[in-house]
Amino acid sequence: MRKLMFFVAALLICHVAQAQYFCTSEGSELHYVNYDEVGQSTSNETITVKNVQREGNTVKASYYDKIVTTKAKNNTSYTLFNWSYDGTATTCTEDLMYGPYIASDSDPARYNEAARLGLLEDKKFKGDNSFTLLNEAQAGTAIPDRHYQLIQNMLKNEITISGASYMGREQVSTTAGKFDCVKISYLKRTKIVLKSTNVRVTEWYAKGIGLVKSETYDMEGALKAKTMLVKKNIK
């Protein structure tokens, strides 16, 4: 009986580990390349998985993202993505304050909630920049709109995500392997002071990984940018 209980518990742990749309292996790395509209590399990203926590059906992890821009001075920047899974849905929130904190020459190891809240106030952040992926969403299922704003480079930025929906499932092949993905698409409107830019974004996410591929198009349907997972090192 005890062996059966241990077996069932192990199955449940494996189920949780495989159900979320992010990696839960501490120290794993995901490598991405960003391309422009003609297929030239514009930057490389290395994501390191840290702060993995599990409690019941809930699992959390942080993606520390180092971005190196091609052929540019002062070309390294950082951002942070916090992921969570509650047994039915995966939620991701980009910590938009982590990059400015690092850029101010502050010690990354000292970044904490107090520092984040201070920067949120300084950057006048308002709104919600999280997104959620449901376990078994069907093609055509709508994803709630979201909007947020903040001060960047002394200018007010407003970002609106609208018309988002699930497009079904697709297999995506990259140099990192083959992935069974959920496909989503949405409109992204970026307003900086009085200038607005609108694009259509399509993204593919795989369980146990996160983003595998992203494509951005202008409103005439021309490809403007692409991101690809090119290598993974799962611990």
Results as ranks from 00 to 15, higher is better:
K73F: 09
Y78L: 15
I67E: 03
T88L: 07
D105G: 09
F81H: 12
L96Q: 02
T46L: 03
G56V: 11
Q53S: 07
A103R: 13
G56H: 07
K50T: 11
K50Q: 15
E94F: 01
G87S: 07
S84V: 04
F81L: 12
Y101H: 09
S41P: 12
T58W: 12
T93Q: 11
V68Q: 14
S84G: 05
S41M: 10
S43K: 09
Q40L: 07
K73W: 13
G27A: 10
L80F: 03
S77R: 10
D86P: 05
I102V: 14
G56R: 07
K60M: 13
L80V: 04
E37C: 10
P100K: 11
I102S: 01
L30M: 13
D86S: 11
V52R: 09
N44F: 06
G27W: 07
G27I: 08
Q53M: 11
D36H: 12
R110F: 06
T58M: 10
S28M: 02
A109G: 06
G56P: 03
L80N: 01
I67D: 01
T79E: 06
S62G: 05
T58E: 08
T70K: 13
S77L: 01
K50F: 06
Y64K: 07
Q53I: 08
D86T: 14
G27P: 02
Y35N: 06
N57H: 14
R54N: 05
S77Y: 04
G99T: 06
E55V: 14
M97R: 00
N75R: 15
D105C: 13
W83Y: 06
D86A: 13
E37N: 14
E45A: 05
H31D: 10
F81V: 13
G99V: 08
L30P: 01
Y64H: 10
T69H: 04
E94H: 07
I47W: 01
T69N: 06
Y78M: 12
T88Y: 05
A61D: 02
T69L: 08
G99C: 07
Y85M: 08
T91K: 08
Y35C: 06
H31C: 12
E45P: 00
N57R: 11
S106R: 12
T93W: 03
K50E: 10
T70H: 09
Y78Q: 15
V59F: 04
Y85V: 09
T70V: 13
L80E: 04
G56C: 06
S84M: 07
I67H: 01
Y85C: 05
E29K: 14
N82A: 08
T42P: 01
L30F: 08
M97W: 00
T91D: 01
E94R: 14
Y98C: 03
T42E: 05
S62M: 09
S104N: 13
Y64V: 07
N44Q: 14
S106F: 03
K73V: 11
E94N: 12
S77G: 10
E45F: 00
L80S: 03
I102R: 05
D65L: 08
A72S: 15
A103M: 11
Y64G: 00
P100L: 09
E55C: 12
A89L: 06
T46W: 00
K71E: 14
L96P: 00
T46V: 13
H31V: 15
D105Q: 15
G87T: 04
T69D: 03
